[in-house]
Design a binder for these strands. Sequence first.
DNA 1: CTCTAAACGAGACGGTACGTCTAGTCTTTCA
DNA 2: TGAAAGACTAGACGTACCGTCTCGTTTAGAG
Lengths: 203, 203, 203, 203
Amino acid sequence: MTGDGRDGAEHPRRGRPRSERARAAVLDAAAELLLDGGIDAVTMEAIAARAQVSKATVYKWWPTRAHVMLESFFERSRGTLAVDPADSLAEALTKQLLALVQLFRDTCSGPQLADLIAAAQADPDIRAALDQQWLRPRREVALRLLAEAVARGELAPDTDPATAADQLFAPVYHRLMLRHEPLADQLAPTLVRQLLTGLTATR
Amino acid sequence: MTGDGRDGAEHPRRGRPRSERARAAVLDAAAELLLDGGIDAVTMEAIAARAQVSKATVYKWWPTRAHVMLESFFERSRGTLAVDPADSLAEALTKQLLALVQLFRDTCSGPQLADLIAAAQADPDIRAALDQQWLRPRREVALRLLAEAVARGELAPDTDPATAADQLFAPVYHRLMLRHEPLADQLAPTLVRQLLTGLTATR
Amino acid sequence: MTGDGRDGAEHPRRGRPRSERARAAVLDAAAELLLDGGIDAVTMEAIAARAQVSKATVYKWWPTRAHVMLESFFERSRGTLAVDPADSLAEALTKQLLALVQLFRDTCSGPQLADLIAAAQADPDIRAALDQQWLRPRREVALRLLAEAVARGELAPDTDPATAADQLFAPVYHRLMLRHEPLADQLAPTLVRQLLTGLTATR
Amino acid sequence: MTGDGRDGAEHPRRGRPRSERARAAVLDAAAELLLDGGIDAVTMEAIAARAQVSKATVYKWWPTRAHVMLESFFERSRGTLAVDPADSLAEALTKQLLALVQLFRDTCSGPQLADLIAAAQADPDIRAALDQQWLRPRREVALRLLAEAVARGELAPDTDPATAADQLFAPVYHRLMLRHEPLADQLAPTLVRQLLTGLTATR
DNA sequence: CTCTAAACGAGACGGTACGTCTAGTCTTTCA
DNA sequence: TGAAAGACTAGACGTACCGTCTCGTTTAGAG
């Protein structure tokens, strides 16, 4: 679906093999165009021209420009999801959030992802790809951490992990898309503290 | 900015007055097209055709299709922001959130807003209009409620109202845009309870 | 069909009127491209570029490049078919043939017509247009001259005018298309003399 | 030039021999495509697909699609040019013309040749091949017959054989290309009679 | 009632990108 | 080494929508 199709090389395959050079050039071109001129500059025409690749080749492997951007995005953000088992729940969640904040704020993955979420509004394929390949893996790490904490009695038994995960992560996406508040490092610990402790004052 | 320009009718104005029929037809056409065929169906060409209006007339009053959609959106969602002073903090927040959940889930304003946030990624005008005319008024209601609760000692003094507001509202927008979880009524009280009480188990 | 559609201006017409500049520029561009680079250089793309006209405008008025060439050809070769009634049959036929030889040999109408006849092999529209607007009017002049000569006893009563006309004119077209022999002025009187007198030696 | 290159098999040749199956399949495919869908359907792509042959193979042996059609045409129309020495001039010419009329009217060689003459307008290679391998041999038979008749005093000494040949043969090609008159058997004797006798009435 | 000004509909215009097609070339493996 | 498979560059195809423009028409208030 994302055009890589680099399946396990079952047979040596007949015919001329796919050009790795073309593939990489297209993905790079898409990322560069996005940074240079915004989403509207990322046209199939411009991608092909910048990558020195024929339009037909682009269309052969990626059905729409959004699919190019999807693969370009995943290529660049194969970030680690690893959790240090020595960390406390708060530490583990804070690390995940901080990594996300910094990825969105400091790399081209931020605008790329914002544009992909935008494109997902009109294209179910993109929504599905984002969900399966980006969102779900990250949510599942958080959901597992929260469920384990509930199981060992650290969190209240009536905790709704799905909602809790959104209360931690959605604000980061929200600020990426709307920019009503900055994406500061401090956001990560604050999100964790406020949700775990609660806002209600203790006397 | 949104093209209505129905300013205070200083003079009765010379010349033919603006056609209210045309204005309404354009806004309706935009909304209908969005529901019928998604954001990609909302082209200036299609709006003009469906509204039985000349393209020049559309361009005269709205610079881009996003501005048409903006005005169409605001026309339909002049929801109340009123807070009943008799309500507790939790009640007031829950009511606001529930209204938002139901607006997003049950009316055409949901997809409209999702598409506007998408369009905002490429158009600063739209981002600004959304911020000023939609997001900010709603945030300020919530921020005032939270600040007052801190002031009267109901909430912890180290509460960050901006982050707290995002922890309440961002999940709703997140589910609107990504659809990884449903927008259920139950979401509203859960968001409020978990944030105010905190997740940490009390022995 | 040929895109002129300059009907008798029944009503003053609504909307922006068709640009005569664009029409002329397209027809000129087509003729120039043909002379510069042959038929293969006459692409819709190149016509639009050379005429400084949008491709959509070209397609709006002419369905294929052959139709552009048709109109371009007719625009340039509204030659006279007039016959001087004082001329003898041989003189009249010779004048018509000589004009054709010189048109084919000395103007851009020669290659244009050759390409149009070529295009007619694949496109019935072009064949019909050529037949009605070019070939038939010229044939009818010759057929009338021949029929009148038969009627007044100048030509043999078993004369087949259709075949005779082809024996006069087809050689000119044949040399235009195949170039196995040159298109010399001398060809015109020779064709007339040989057909009228016959080749058979008189003792 | 036409890609057959089946030279006299001097040595047994090294390597895998050329596939006769591929050669025949390509020529057949070209002829079939022409009849099915007209000249525009005869693309290298379609020829290769229909012949179950790789595009590279087609390009290896024929430089353009016109060359494929040329060879396909010659393959099917190796008609005899033999002249019966017992025939009179008129009989010999009529037989040649009648064979041509029937070939054009009743076999697929008619449209094939029309398309080749069309293609010759844009491609000098095709023009040259047509001239040398088709047109010239046939013209030379006619020119020899005419020259011999002049030599033995049967035809007028001022006869121009080249023009006379065109007055006999060009009408047949003209009707093939333009279709303004049908290709009837009767055309052959009429052409000969009118040219040899002349149209002028004898008292 | 006429004049004037603005908004209106229709629709042609120069552009840009779309997604498809064919031409040819090139690089593999198979026979 | 030829054939087959198929990826590649190059560029024209015809379409859609963009935003602008030029018309003639309509609808008011001003004179």
